[in-house]
Design a protein around this nucleic acid. Structure first.
Lengths: 127, 127
DNA sequence: ACCGGCACTATCCGCCAGGATAGTAGTATC
DNA sequence: GATACTACTATCCTGGCGGATAGTGCCGGT
């Protein structure tokens, strides 16, 4: 029978990662940067619907966690390049794990569903 | 250069899994049920701070996604046992992956930090 | 001098997850 | 008949995430 302390220690690092990925845009952002480095405006256009305010915040969060690096290029005008760090690359493996399980899960739910019923508590399967 | 459609298809299953784990209590709940099956009240006491309203909702969500099964026992009074399904067990592997990466990440951040500064954008390291 | 592009920051606001509190229904025990 | 236990449901309310909109500072082109 595990003690309360142990449970907390077990759950905490899991929550750390989930907080890292929390919000609408973290995953799209990491995926976009996994392909290649991008400028601020480029990301703004790529992730259509994101506001500069949100983009800025998300990038800063990922930077603090050392998944993303911000490099100012001495061009005229000055541009800023965002890219994954080597460490950020290791995180892509975690995302790949999530994606892999997510794919089979989606297939599983669709299999057990009549075509006309596509809305679940887990989100909209039709999306 | 990947097209927009492909990007959406890439990100969607990842978000599916994150939605599955969204909220304060899903992970503690799954961990508690991974140890053994539990009754409603038992979970209410175990996850201290959770309200019955929230517990009920979270359990229903996990049930719809077939990670958890609800079994009514014909005792007096009637009790209800919640437990992980075999499928739910496979999901524990995903949580283990998150936990593993989260542990090294936490260690990494603590390493690069003066002891007095414990609050990060990624959450509170001191917790 | 003006316009436009880049990289943001500042303010305000609406929505909703989840907390607080209370209530329901069935049974059993005192 | 009052209280207690199990397993919930119902209502109200608040904090915070993120959207909408606007503004800043710098530079280069015409």
């Amino acid at each position: 029978m595990p003690k309360k302390e142990e449970c907390i220690h077990y759950v905490r690092p899991v929550r750390d990662v989930l907080e890292l990925l929390a919000g609408k845009w973290k995953v799209p952002l990491l995926v976009a940067l996994a392909v290649r480095s991008r400028k601020f405006n480029e990301l703004e256009r790529l992730l259509e619907g994101i506001t500069p305010r949100t983009l800025s915040k998300e990038l800063k969060g990922l930077e603090v966690n050392e998944l993303v690096q911000r490099i100012v290029c001495a061009t005229t005008p000055v541009t800023v390049e965002y890219s994954l760090t080597a460490y950020g690359d290791t995180f892509e493996d975690v995302i790949a794990t999530l994606r892999s399980w997510g794919l089979t899960h989606r297939a599983r739910l669709l299999e057990r569903t009549e075509p006309e019923q596509t809305t679940f508590m887990c989100g909209n399967l039709a999306e």
